[in-house]
Nucleic acid binder design. Structure first.
Lengths: 274, 274
DNA sequence: TTACTATTGTATCAAAATAACACATTAAAT
DNA sequence: ATTTAATGTGTTATTTTGATACAATAGTAA
C-alpha cells in the first residue's frame, strides 16, 4: 500500500515521517517561516519553488521553528537545506497571520495526492494533525547566486523537485504562497536602491549592462543607460576592473566587482541595509 | 492573602484570572502582538506604556492572538482596548523571534511582584505556565491623536496604569520591549516621508511649525524652516485654512488641515503608505 | 588593411529638486 | 505709533535628474 506513493522508497519515507512525528514536540507551535529565495539567470529574476513529490503542486520552501532556535536561524536553516549556501543575504519582510490562511491540506490535490494524504492521516495522525493547523508564518527573502546553489535532496517531507521560476511567470502555488511572493517583491522594489542586490544576484564580475538588466527585471521598466551608469558609479560601491573580452562586435565594456567594504560603510551611515 | 496585591479588589482580579485560564484554549499558541502606540504632545513624540499594577515595571501593550482572529485584528483589538480608538493608522513593522526572548516572568520583580507571581503560580498554574513560555511576537505601530485617546480601565491582566512617555526618555521596560520600540522608530524614520503622520499625530488643524516640530522630533535633527514649508506644500496634501489667532507677538501663521482624499491619491500612485 | 557596425564611456545642456539665505509682512507687546 | 519676533515668500547657488550627443573601440566584412 505505502509503496505506490513513494518514489524514494518505502524505508526512506517511513523514516522521514517517523522523524517528523518525533520532531513535533521540539517545534514551536503555530509558527513557521517561508523563504523567497531569489536568483538571477538569463536576464530574469527567478524564485526557487519546490514541487511536491506526489502531486504537481508547487510551493515556497519553508519550515518549522525549533524551540531552541531563533526565528531567523530557522529561516537560515531552510535556506541552507535548500541551497547549500550559508552566508548570504537574508531578510525578514512580513508576517502573514490571517485567520483563514489555508493550511497545506487545503489544496486541490490530485487523486494520487489525496491518497497519499489519507495514508499519512491514517498512519501518522499526529503529524497530519500538526500540519493541518493554523500557522502564522514569517516571510524571509534571500538573494543568491544561482550558479553557486546546489539543491540538496532535501530532508524528506512532501516535496522533492525544485525549479527556478521567473517572477513574471509564477505558476499556481499552494496556500497563500503567491501572496507571499508578491509582498516580497513589492518590499524589494521599494528599497531596491538600498539593497546589495549585485553582491548576491550577479556573478563576482559583471558589466554595467548586467547590472542595469537586473534592476530592470525587478522594477519591470526600462532605465536610461547613461544615467543609470552615472548613478551607479556615483554610489562608489563598485570597483572597475580590466576590460572584458566581450565576443560582441562593439566596444568591450568594463567589468565591475561589488565592493563589500565600501557598501558596509554606507550601511554604517544609515544608507543601505544588511 | 490575595487581597494585599490587588488594588482593584479581590473579585475583579479573581474574575480576570479565571477568564484568562478559560481563554487560553482559544488563543493561538506561541504567538503574540505588541503595539507601539505613538502620539505627539508638547512637541514630543510619545509612546503609550503600561505599568504593572503590582510592581513598578513598564511594558508595551500587547496581547494574544485569538484562534478565530487575524493577526492584524489582534493588534487592532489591543489598540482599541487601550485607546478606545478604532480607525487609526496601524502597521506591522517586524516580528521578533529570538529563542532567548525573555518571558514576562524574567524580570527583576520587587518583593511584592514576586509574591503576586507566586500567588498566580499557585492558584492559576495553567495561566502561569502559558505566560511563561517562549513567544514570537509581531510588532505593530499605531499613530494616534493623544487628545482623542481615552484609556479604558483595561481588561484585567497584570497592568493598570498607563503613561505617555517621550521617546527620547524611555524608562527601563520588561522583556525586549525597548528593542521593539527602537526597531519601530528606525522603521518609521526610514519611511517618514511616505507616512501620513500629520493625519494621525496632530490635531485636525495645525500650523507649519507644528508639522516641522513633529518631523524634527522623529528625525532628531533640525530642519530649515522655509525649505521645509515649501516641500510640504508641494506635496499637495494640506489644505490651507484661515489665519490663526496665535497668542504670540508675531505674524499669525496659517492653519492647515490634512487632506485625506489627496493623500489617498498619492497612495494609489504608489507613493505613500496606508 | 580599411571601412562599417553596434555598443560603450563620457560629455553636455536643460529641467527639477535642494540648500542657504534675504526680506517684506504682521499680530501682539510696549 | 513703534518695536519685536516669527511667518510667508522670494532669490540665488548648488546638486540631482532626464534626455541627448558624440567620440572610442572590439569585432565583422570587404
Amino acid at each position: 500500500m505505502e509503496k505506490e506513493f513513494l518514489t524514494r522508497g518505502l524505508e526512506d519515507e517511513i523514516q522521514d515521517l517517523r522523524e517528523m512525528e518525533d520532531a513535533i514536540e521540539n517545534w514551536h507551535p503555530g509558527s513557521s517561516v517561508d523563504c523567497v529565495i531569489l536568483g538571477y539567470e538569463k536576464q530574469k529574476v527567478k524564485v526557487l519553488l519546490l514541487k511536491m513529490e506526489f502531486d504537481d503542486l508547487r510551493m515556497l520552501p519553508g519550515g518549522m521553528i525549533p524551540k531552541n532556535k531563533d526565528l531567523r536561524d530557522a529561516a537560515y536553516h531552510v535556506l541552507k537545506v535548500r541551497t547549500g549556501l550559508e552566508s548570504v543575504f537574508l531578510k525578514q519582510f512580513h508576517t502573514f497571520g490571517r485567520k483563514d490562511r489555508p493550511s497545506i491540506m487545503d489544496n486541490s490535490f490530485s487523486e494520487k495526492g489525496r491518497q497519499y494524504l489519507d495514508h499519512v492521516k491514517l498512519n501518522y495522525p499526529k503529524y497530519y494533525d500538526w500540519m493541518n493547523r493554523r500557522y502564522i508564518t514569517t516571510g524571509y527573502f534571500a538573494l543568491v547566486d544561482i550558479s553557486k546553489v546546489k539543491v540538496e535532496y532535501s530532508s524528506g517531507q512532501m516535496n522533492e523537485k525544485y525549479d527556478w521560476v521567473a517572477i513574471d511567470n509564477i505558476p499556481d502555488l499552494i496556500m497563500d504562497h503567491d501572496r507571499i511572493i508578491r509582498k516580497c517583491l513589492d518590499f524589494i522594489r521599494v528599497q531596491l536602491n538600498y539593497l546589495p542586490i549585485s553582491m548576491n544576484l550577479l556573478p563576482d564580475e559583471f558589466t554595467m549592462k548586467d547590472l542595469q538588466k537586473l534592476y530592470e527585471a525587478f522594477l519591470n521598466e526600462k532605465l536610461e543607460r547613461s544615467n543609470f551608469q552615472r548613478k551607479m558609479l556615483k554610489l562608489g560601491i563598485f570597483d572597475r576592473l580590466k576590460k572584458k573580452m566581450s565576443g560582441a562586435a562593439n566596444k568591450a565594456p568594463y567589468l565591475y566587482r561589488f565592493d563589500k567594504d565600501k557598501y558596509n560603510e554606507l550601511v554604517k551611515k544609515g544608507i543601505g541595509v544588511l
